[in-house]
Amino acid sequence: MEMFDYPFMQRAFIAGLMIAFLASLSGSFIVLRRYSLLSETLAHVSLVGVSLGLLFGLSPLWMAVAASLVASWLIEYLRSVHGMYSDSILAIFLSGSLALAIVIVSLAGSFNASLFSYLFGSILSVSNEDLWVMGVFGSLAMALLLIFFKELYFIAFDEEVARAGGIRVTLLNFMLVSVIAIIIALSIRVVGTLLIGALMVIPPVAAIRFGMGFFKTTILSALIALLSVVIGLVGSYIFALPSGAAIVLCLLVIFVIALAVNRR
């Protein structure tokens, strides 16, 4: 327990548990919709915002949020209005944003420690200001997900039937991708651009293996994510491992256990 004597470890646990709950909760909806690549795509888009922030001396976090939000709206617009296939849109944005981020980094001169921390996460460097930002926007995101929980589930299960039932599908879809964009932009400081997709996708996929209802699956998904963050942070402290990678490895171990327990 000596790790909790250090303020940076206290902030790391608070940030990690907060992001784990938000990511797993929102991830349940995109996994059910077979839209899992959205998290990885928006993570790469967030990297563009971080690169722009470092290049022009602006806040990387706010630039990441702005870039992720704009990209999420464009993705949903192309999918819902122009009827483009989701996987095609996500592939275009993923590869395009990665290419753009590389160009911006090359214009800036080279990789630096700040950009590296956003790539792989730097949870131990989370500040009190970061915690306040995560708390405010995280609470807003969680409130929206819980208020429209039934409607979002209905849309994920069958979008056309939901539209016929009078649900404002387009508006709620834009709200969902906006919430996911904000969560991802806030999360890259904790687990990194290259790993946030795992925190958002693996817990729901592992929980689904237990064959429960959607609400119970969502709860189990959150518990898996929270447990992985705790074990990953403790392991990273004891063995001096990268915290983001340790968390993702814990998620993978739990996923393999879920597969082994529920072979059918």
Rank of each mutant, 00 (worst) to 15 (best):
M3C: 13
M3R: 10
F8V: 02
M18R: 05
F21G: 08
A23T: 01
F29A: 06
F29K: 06
I30P: 11
I30Q: 02
V31Q: 05
S39K: 01
A43C: 04
S46F: 04
S46R: 07
V50N: 01
V50E: 00
L52S: 04
L54E: 02
W62P: 13
S68I: 04
S68Y: 06
V70C: 12
V70G: 13
S72K: 00
S72H: 02
W73D: 03
L74Y: 10
L74C: 09
E76C: 14
Y77V: 05
L78N: 13
G83V: 05
Y85M: 11
D87K: 01
L94C: 05
S95E: 10
S95I: 15
G96W: 10
L98S: 07
L98H: 00
A101W: 00
A101D: 00
I102D: 11
V105F: 06
L107T: 00
A108C: 09
N112V: 04
A113T: 14
S114P: 08
F116Q: 11
Y118T: 06
L119G: 07
F120W: 11
I123Q: 09
I123P: 06
L124Y: 08
L124A: 08
N128M: 08
L131C: 09
V133S: 10
G138F: 10
L140H: 08
L145T: 13
F149G: 10
I155Q: 06
D158N: 15
A164Y: 10
L176F: 15
L176W: 14
L186A: 07
L186Y: 08
I188T: 03
V190L: 09
V191T: 11
V191H: 06
L199F: 04
I202T: 14
A207W: 03
G211I: 07
F214L: 09
F215P: 14
T217P: 08
T217A: 10
I219V: 15
S221P: 14
A225S: 15
L226V: 15
L227T: 14
L227A: 07
V229R: 07
S236H: 04
Y237G: 03
I238C: 09
F239S: 15
P242A: 14
G244K: 04
A246P: 13
I247P: 07
L249H: 08
V256T: 08
L259M: 11
N262G: 03
N262Q: 09
